[in-house]
Amino acid sequence: MTELVQNLIDGLGRGSIYALLALGVAVVFGVMHLLNFAHGELITVSGYVAYALFNQGWSWFLVAPLIVVVAIITSLVIERLAFSLVRGASDFTLVLTSFGIHFLVSAIFIMSVGARVKTFSEPGWIANTFAVGPINVEVFDVVVIGVTIVTLLATVVILQKTMFGLALRAAAADFDTARLMGIDSNKVIRGAFALSGALAGIAGVFWLMRAGNTAPSSGISPMIKAVLAALIGGLGSLKGAVIGGLALGVAEVVLRSQLPGEAAALTEAVVFAMIALLFIFRPQGIISVSHAERV
């Protein structure tokens, strides 16, 4: 029981980061039908900027908000330079474009700063824990879960209460009709990328805090987690993306603690295999967004 609660807290901490990333993927998918394999690169770019600032002697308190800003700008730049040119193209083209960006960004870092991992120091409090009865709670998990809750609430407010949020939801539901209502497709798509970048930036702060380093290939892992979590939840469903992220985090932690011996090292493989199974039996993900075909 104690172990279960412990795992749950750890899992939710981890899952919160995935949830924020997946939500960003889902927001963009909603308006553009793009499965964004370049999403992890927002963290790679932020990581290098953070590294450069740490070298200048900046502290985490100053760097953290800047990471979010950098992620938003990067997201917008990528949209402008690449995705805006393939709007409305086939799924095949969209997926490969995002895959190409993912690869290009990491290649540019390899070329310009080299393939070596750049390390920086994690914030001092990251390893602190406090005891609640028999359970050891990491301060980091509490912070992550807290910030995630606040971020999700803010996102809900943006989506529900602002005209931009309304436009975004309308465009995701029916893009053509949204345009007929006077919604500017450029603005709504850029807005979606900005929101997606902001969410990735906040997730990125925690990701980088925990990792304590950055490398050209840093984007792969968050990208995989984000895309898979969004898919598990059911593409296009924002609620699904959050649930998918949390589920992925908890599944990882629980499996790691429950699998015997050498198999524990295979946690990720088991999780991926489970996801494949999920899609074999429920191709639309947990929450389905129906697309009826008119013949």
Partner: peptide
């Protein structure tokens, strides 16, 4: 790192202009 950059650009360029 140039060959990797070229590969990435090739993928992007073809997807955008000649998919």
């Amino acid at each position: 790192g140039l060959p990797r950059v070229v590969l990435g650009l090739a993928m992007l360029g073809f997807m955008i202009w000649r998919s």
